[in-house]
Amino acid sequence: MNKTFTKIFAIFWKDMLTELRTKEIIVSVLVFALLVLVIFGFTFGAGLEVTEMVAPGILWVALTFGGVIGLNRIFAVEKENSRLEGLMLCPVDRAVIYWGKLAGSFTFMLAVAFVITPIFLALFNLPIFLPRLALIIILATLGFAAVGTLFSALAVNTRARDIMLPVLFLPVVVPVIVSAVKATGPVLAGGPWGDMLTWLQILIAFDIIYLVVATLVFEFVVEE
């Protein structure tokens, strides 16, 4: 058990080191997500009466699309530098590779979300300090990463891979997007816990189901 964890951590740490040197994924995703926010700001005019209705949607569209861009890179960087074969040759269980990659994509997406969200809150004149929103972001990002890491590994070996990932990923994560938006609404409005608990439960259920399913089927995606 302890050994498995060490192996997962090794793969995760390798991705972290690469990212720390190149800053390829985080920077591009950050800029992209920021652009989405700004474009939304222009299209909706950020008036106060509109903000309450559309703000949760804007945040989650930015995070979802940014997430897709980032997830695309998770396996693409390996593929481009022909490191994928090396990774697959590692004498570890395929599920370990999945969890290592998952930890990486989860961390990247979370890092981006924690930079983007305060900017979003400031741009739309909403309260900045929202611990409950952090909880929603962690759970939703975990769901995105669980499904996204699996599909990223799959899309990387197809033609037109940049379009294959969003086409596959977005319909499957509809429940995550809906729950995240619905849970964010009451938080931004300063509402009670009750409204968001149901949605948090759905997020947790989705996370668990997809972590289990993806762990089971990942080996079929990467076997060569």
Binding site: L154, N157, T158, R159, P175, V178, I202, V213, V217, V221
Partner: peptide, 30 residues
């Protein structure tokens, strides 16, 4: 879009499984 038939078969099987598991979750959420 898969690059070879064996891959296409494996990939689509994975999507066939993951996609179907998604159905009840989507239904409950919506």
């Amino acid at each position: 879009f898969a690059t070879e038939p064996a891959r296409a078969a494996r990939y689509s099987a994975v999507i066939g499984i993951v996609g179907f598991i998604d159905v009840p979750i989507v239904f409950i959420t919506v």
